[in-house]
Design a protein around this nucleic acid. Structure first.
Length: 485
RNA sequence: GGCCCCAUCGUCUAGUCAGGUCCAGGACAUCAGGUUUUCAUCCUGAGAACAGGGGUUCGAAUCCCCUUGGGGUCACCA
């Protein structure tokens, strides 16, 4: 495990709902920072003004904090490198790009976006390599300055060497080499004066003292451009770690068309943050001891960034469901109840005290917190009455169900103590005496009490409902059967 | 299409860097049993993979090459 403090960052773009991929990358970044006693920074990458959504930034903060992936420096927290919003750092990019212009590592390009689009079309038709044709690359310096002074619209491009190759080491994949002729003269500053990701990202990583760049694999191919910018700025390279991209079932890059990707969605469904983090950690990494259910603390102890696998993990909700159930059952009852409350899954008008009574009966059955309400409505409200068909089990008959329910009703109306053990024994005795099979009594009883085909243990259901309710519901079922025969 | 990355059960993966202990281990899912008043939990068991072909080697899932397949990327988006 690395012992030098890592300064790492994530740089989400405020263009929509908080993305599960952001949490995935944040998890690895933050964990490395915590392991090494370094810092985890949050930088808002809002240089694309056309896709910018004002509400998005706060949603990203909220989602990440909800997951427990808190940061040490960021737009809302401030820090020694403020500001942490790229749109507020334009002066710095300008200054750096002037430097690049002077050193000849960058040049102005006056080609219009339309012209370039046409060129690209032509290249596509002729099956040529797609890329900038280099029109303005060798423009006279004086002319270039004059045209810029006259405010002629232009972008600033990186001057990529024509020959040679650029290489770097990805700490997960090994050495990557790419011929420079394959690298386009990347736009550094757009016509609107804002930097592109490539420039802003490198300048900020240098300014922020970032030591490890941990990001998604989709950036791997543009890393040589970044390397060239680092070199032009005469700054040593950080460590690069490209983690695999989360995938749809068809193995394409995860997308909202084919998968739920909004962290808000997972929260609304009642997924626990513990389960989400656990699941994400398992995408590309596996615990040395094989124990797959774990929390953030243990992940921090065991995780090794260099052991992330290179394969492409399919995002499979089925396993998340299993993990969610495991974490629900691992949590202590008070904590779970509090969580259900906090996350807004307590049914309308129900107090935590009331919920505490039924919770133990349904924990073993809950996969997502949102199931709490449907699984417990029978307790908080009188359910819709069961149908006569509901009350007759497959191998039973209306007469048998009626007799069983009537006998149970009578038993409960007697002076029998209304306690789990006593009721259980009395029902067993009744079953034995009448020589009835258990399901013939319990299935009608289940529907009488809960109006569902699946429910918790019926003795427990009765105890929690109370004698009067139980008798009322059984009698209601008796009436239904009597009417139908 | 060019370039780059990747390749073990349906899915997540261990094993690959330091070749033999792997006729490949675990987990989810599936199926079959057990416990049981239903569902679930829990327990037991089963089926299920080294993409293909060449090398190197006494020996290859592990190293090399080719093929195939998948993905990413080729924006004045990130």
């Amino acid at each position: 495990m690395s012992s030098t403090p890592a300064r790492v960052r994530i740089a989400p773009s405020p263009t929509g709902d908080p993305h599960v991929g952001t949490a995935y990358v944040a998890l690895f970044n933050r964990t490395l920072a915590r392991q090494t006693g370094g810092q985890f920074l949050l930088r808002i990458d809002d240089t694309d003004r056309s896709r910018y959504q004002a509400s998005s930034e706060q949603k990203i903060f909220d989602a990440l904090r909800w997951l427990g992936l808190d940061w040490d420096e960021g737009p809302d927290l401030g820090g020694p490198c403020a500001p942490y919003r790229q749109s507020e750092r334009n002066a710095i990019y300008q200054q750096k790009v002037d430097h690049l212009l002077e050193s000849g590592n960058a040049y102005r390009c006056f080609c219009s976006a339309e012209t370039l689009a046409e060129v690209r079309e032509k290249q596509k038709q002729d099956k040529l390599r797609l890329g900038y044709p280099g029109t303005c690359r060798d423009l006279d310096a004086v002319e270039s300055s004059q045209r810029a002074a006259k405010e002629e619209p232009h972008v600033i491009r990186l001057r990529v060497p024509v020959e040679g190759e650029t290489c770097f080491v990805d700490q997960i994949r090994g050495e990557i080499r790419i011929a420079n002729c394959e690298i386009d003269d990347q736009v550094l500053i757009k016509t609107d004066g804002f930097p592109t990701y490539h420039l802003a990202n490198v300048v900020d990583d240098i300014e922020f003292g970032i030591t490890h760049v941990i990001r998604a694999e989709e950036w791997l191919i543009s890393t040589p451009k970044h390397v060239l910018i680092y070199q032009a700025l005469e700054h040593p390279l950080p460590g690069f770690f490209h983690v695999p991209l989360l995938r749809n079932a068809d193995h394409s890059k995860i997308s909202k068309r084919k998968n739920p990707v909004s962290l808000d969605w997972f929260r609304e469904q009642g997924y626990l943050k513990e389960a989400i983090l656990n699941f994400l950690a398992l995408m590309g990494w596996s615990p040395p001891d094989g124990q797959e259910v774990f929390d953030l603390d243990r992940f921090q102890q065991e995780f090794n960034i260099e052991k992330i696998s290179t394969g492409a993990p399919v995002f499979d909700l089925v396993k998340l469901d299993w993990l969610n159930g495991m974490h629900i059952r691992k949590m202590d009852p008070d904590q779970l109840l509090q969580r259900i409350d906090e996350e807004g899954f307590l049914p309308q008008g129900v107090s935590p005290q009331q919920a505490a009574a039924v919770l133990p009966l349904v924990v073993e059955r809950m996969v997502r917190l949102a199931e709490f309400e449907p699984r417990t409505t029978w307790f908080f409200n009188l359910p819709e009455p069961p149908t006569p068909e509901d009350l007759v089990p497959r191998k039973g008959s209306p007469e048998q169900s009626l007799e069983a329910l009537q006998a149970t009703s009578a038993l409960l109306k007697s002076d029998l103590p209304f306690q789990a053990e006593a009721v259980n024994e009395a029902l067993d005795a009744m079953l034995a005496e009448k020589q009835w099979k258990k399901p013939l009594l319990f299935m009608p009883l289940r529907f009488a009490l809960t109006s569902r085909s699946d429910s918790p243990d019926l003795i427990e259901v009765m105890m929690v409902l109370g004698r009067d309710n139980v008798i009322d519901r059984i009698d209601r079922a008796i009436a239904i059967l009597e009417c139908s025969t």
